[in-house]
């Protein structure tokens, strides 16, 4: 399970996160919602080792998350799909996928994982030898999630997978995320602007406001909370 206690993160003089505490059980899908600048991305970047924490602690099982580099956290099952369709456009679809499994140094297992990803996203399978910049937005997001799956993650950190995608595609991506969580027993933190969509598939919800937690609870309860609805869901 993931335990975050009193996490504080500064960007220079700006305090991005202020004493954030979160608890997510194994197998749960947690949606983190909130306005722009609420600290959602900072939270993910700190949990994946890209940003340094000023104070507080974060543990994943026995692992101390805050003092590790991203490349070692991947080896402990924490995988972060960063904002904006995190694929490398100059590489082919196949190479993008391979990249996620290089550290495992096991060709056989990597090939097996690749088959699983292609099964999950058949459209990637049809485009393996194309450069990633020839893909549509939705396909790129599939590729980014696929690359992450190549690392055999247990904790998946997803930053705005719906960004810039058509509503129908968003629905598909969200459904895949929910399916993955169930079938592989993943723990997922889903950061989203699309609060309604995210709370629909999530088990629990966390509302961030100006770097602090404004509300937290089961996703269903948050969806029905009048204050949350007014401030973040817009209806």
């Amino acid at each position: 399970m993931l335990r975050v206690k009193n996490l504080t993160v500064d960007h220079g003089a700006i305090r991005a996160l202020h004493g954030v505490s979160i608890s997510i059980e194994k197998g749960q899908l947690a949606a983190v919602i909130g306005a722009n600048g609420a600290g959602k991305t900072t939270l993910l970047r700190t949990l994946s080792g890209l940003n340094k924490a000023t104070d507080g602690s974060a543990t994943w099982g026995d692992l101390n998350v805050l003092h590790s580099k991203p490349e070692s956290l991947v080896r402990h099952g924490i995988s972060h799909v960063s904002e904006g369709k995190s694929v490398i456009p100059e590489l082919t679809v196949s190479e993008n996928l391979d990249l996620g499994a290089l550290w495992r140094r096991n060709r056989k297992e990597s090939a097996q994982s690749k088959n699983e990803v292609v099964e999950l996203f058949p459209r990637l399978g049809e485009r393996l030898s194309q450069r990633a910049d020839s893909l549509s937005g939705g396909e790129r997001q599939m590729l980014a999630i696929g690359r992450s799956m190549m690392s055999k993650p247990q904790l998946l950190l997803l930053d705005e997978p719906s960004l810039g995608l058509a509503p129908l595609v968003v629905e598909q991506i969200f459904q895949s995320i929910r399916d993955l969580t169930n079938s592989l027993g993943l723990t997922v933190i889903l950061v989203e602007q699309n609060a309604i969509g995210a709370l629909k598939i999530a088990d629990i919800g966390i509302v961030l406001n100006l770097g602090s937690i404004a509300a937290t609870g089961s996703a269903a309860a948050l969806r029905d909370d009048p204050a949350v609805r007014a401030a973040y869901l817009g209806f």
Binding site: S48, L50, K69, P70, E71, V74, R75, S79, H80, V81, S82, S86, V87, I88, P89, E90, L91, E95, L99, G100, L102, W103, R147, S151
Partner: peptide
């Protein structure tokens, strides 16, 4: 990968 996108590469375990 590391020359095109160092951050994505690190997140991929490179």
């Amino acid at each position: 990968a590391a020359s095109f996108a160092p951050e994505i590469s690190r997140l991929s375990g490179i």
